[in-house]
């Protein structure tokens, strides 16, 4: 009798087994990435073809600088003077070189001060500038279309670019290095063979690293690379030490490691064929080297890179 009761209880409980308890399953979406981020599989076609050889950093010898406000008739400088403002392509995302001061809303930095020196030489007033923000990839198209008078935006002088635009003499000598998370164990570009590296699209840095690392990711701006590094979507950022110093200054958990593995001579980009403007800008740069204003600008922005080196010596081909 008791056994019967036991069996019937067992049967009953077996029959009344409910469904498995429900579970809450989160919907996981893809992690956000900077707009326009993409993986680069091959170097841009222009740099894949054998680079034309030339003496890239040799520019045009400047004559004496005309006094401010009195530009030679018919010159490109006079055209700018008559317009009343210099239109300059700069960056607003490269801390220390060209960036937007979020307190004042003004664009500032090493490159921006170079622009102001040029404006001062034309107008006698360094404020007569209209800044146009350009991405790395937009620099040459903007010069070719004439939307900007010149570009001062961490732009490396290369033979390949010289076929499409003109450059001033070298105003800063940078070199490519890598930025990694502190204590990540990556010590130079050679330790990144099986890693992901972020670069800005249209920069010379891209061609310099693409064959030395496993994966290259490109984004529109250098700060987008820092976003990816902070979000753990890239292991390193590789570009000129000037830009990396600006990125490192925004994140104490990063450090610039390894030596320079390229030479990146910066020049002021000028539309092809405007020889008078090239000579004029070179004159302004000569003055900056000799009157100490170059060193003043260096100290203002780039002192984190070490004591001021001597300004790069200008070389001319004529």
């Amino acid at each position: 009798m008791r056994r019967l009761a036991l069996v019937s209880i067992m049967l009953l409980t077996a029959c009344s087994a409910g469904p498995a308890p429900s579970e809450v399953v989160p919907r996981s979406g893809p992690a956000p990435q900077p707009a326009g981020a993409s993986t680069v599989t091959a170097a841009p076609s222009s740099s894949a073809s054998p680079a034309p050889s030339c003496d890239a950093t040799a520019s045009l010898r400047p004559g004496p600088l005309p006094p401010a406000g009195q530009m030679p008739a018919g010159s490109n400088m006079e055209r700018i003077l008559k317009r009343g403002r210099l239109i300059a392509g700069v960056d607003q995302n490269s801390y220390l070189m060209g960036f937007r001061n979020s307190f004042t809303g003004e664009i500032e930095g090493f490159d921006v001060d170079v622009v102001r020196q040029i404006a001062k030489a034309i107008f006698g007033d360094e404020k007569k500038v209209q800044f146009k923000v350009v991405t790395s990839a937009e620099r040459i198209p903007m010069l070719q279309s004439g939307e900007v008078d010149l570009v001062v935006r961490t732009m490396t002088i290369t033979c390949e670019r010289l076929e499409r635009v003109d450059f001033s003499s070298v105003y800063y000598q940078a070199g490519q290095r890598v930025l990694v998370r502190r204590n990540s164990g990556n010590t130079s570009v050679d330790s990144l063979k099986d890693k992901r590296v972020c670069v800005a699209s249209g920069s010379t840095s891209l061609g310099n690293v693409i064959n030395r690392v496993k994966t290259t990711v490109s984004v529109p701006n250098w700060t987008d690379c820092l976003v990816m590094l902070q979000q753990g979507q890239t292991d390193a950022i590789s570009t000129d030490d000037t830009i990396l110093a600006g990125l490192a200054a925004q994140d104490p958990y990063t450090e610039v490691v390894g030596g320079r593995f390229t030479e990146e001579p910066y020049g002021v980009g000028i539309p092809k064929g405007q020889e008078d403007l090239v000579r004029f800008v070179n004159g302004v740069l000569e003055r900056m080297r000799s009157d100490g204003s170059w060193s003043g600008i260096y100290w203002r922005w780039l002192s984190t890179l070490g004591p001021a080196p001597a300004p790069p010596v200008a070389r001319y081909r004529d």
Binding site: P32, A35, N93, S102, T223, V227, L247, A249, Q250
Partner: peptide, 22 residues
Amino acid sequence: NNRQGFPVGAAYLREASGLMRT
């Protein structure tokens, strides 16, 4: 980031806006 004067703040803003739009 913006409060500290870092331009990377603008990059985060662009990323957020991209997430919103896409």
